[in-house]
Computed example of a mutant assay.
Amino acid sequence: MATTYPMTLQGAQKLREELNVLKSKTRPTIIKSIAEAREHGDLKENAEYHAARDQQSFCEGRIQDIEGKLAGAQIIDVTKIVNNGKVIFGSTVKLLNVGTDEEIQYHIVGDDEADLKNSRISVNSPIARGLIGKEVDDVSAIKTPSGVVEYEIIQVDYI
Rank of each mutant, 00 (worst) to 15 (best):
G61P: 06
I66R: 03
A37S: 13
T100M: 11
F58Y: 08
G68L: 05
D112H: 08
D138N: 14
D54P: 00
N124E: 10
V139M: 10
N83W: 02
S140T: 13
Q64D: 07
H107T: 14
H40R: 15
I66G: 02
Q105G: 05
I81D: 03
I121H: 00
I127N: 03
N84G: 13
V139Y: 06
L131G: 04
H107C: 08
L70C: 02
A128P: 08
I34Y: 00
Q74P: 04
V123G: 04
E102W: 02
V139K: 15
S119Y: 11
E45Y: 05
Q105T: 15
V87C: 03
V82I: 14
V136S: 08
G130K: 05
S140A: 15
K80D: 03
L131R: 13
K44T: 10
D77P: 03
A35W: 01
Y49F: 15
V93F: 00
N118H: 13
K69E: 06
S125C: 12
V98K: 09
N46T: 05
A128H: 07
G99H: 14
K69M: 07
K94Y: 08
L70Q: 00
E67H: 07
G68E: 08
G85F: 14
D54C: 02
H107W: 09
N84F: 04
A141W: 06
D54Y: 02
S119K: 14
G110R: 11
S125Y: 04
T79V: 11
T79W: 06
V98Q: 08
E45H: 12
G130Q: 09
K134Y: 08
D112G: 05
K44H: 06
T92Y: 12
A35Y: 02
A114W: 02
V82N: 11
S119D: 06
N97K: 06
I127Y: 03
E113I: 09
A71D: 12
E39V: 11
D42L: 13
V109P: 00
Q74G: 07
A47F: 02
R62Y: 06
A37V: 01
Q105N: 03
Q55D: 09
A141K: 15
G68K: 15
Q55I: 01
V139D: 05
V93P: 00
L43G: 07
D137E: 10
H40I: 09
E39N: 13
G61I: 13
I104Y: 01
A114G: 08
A35F: 05
I127D: 00
I108H: 03
G133T: 11
N124I: 04
E36T: 11
I108F: 04
R120D: 02
A35P: 02
A51D: 08
L43W: 03
Q74R: 15
T79K: 14
E39P: 06
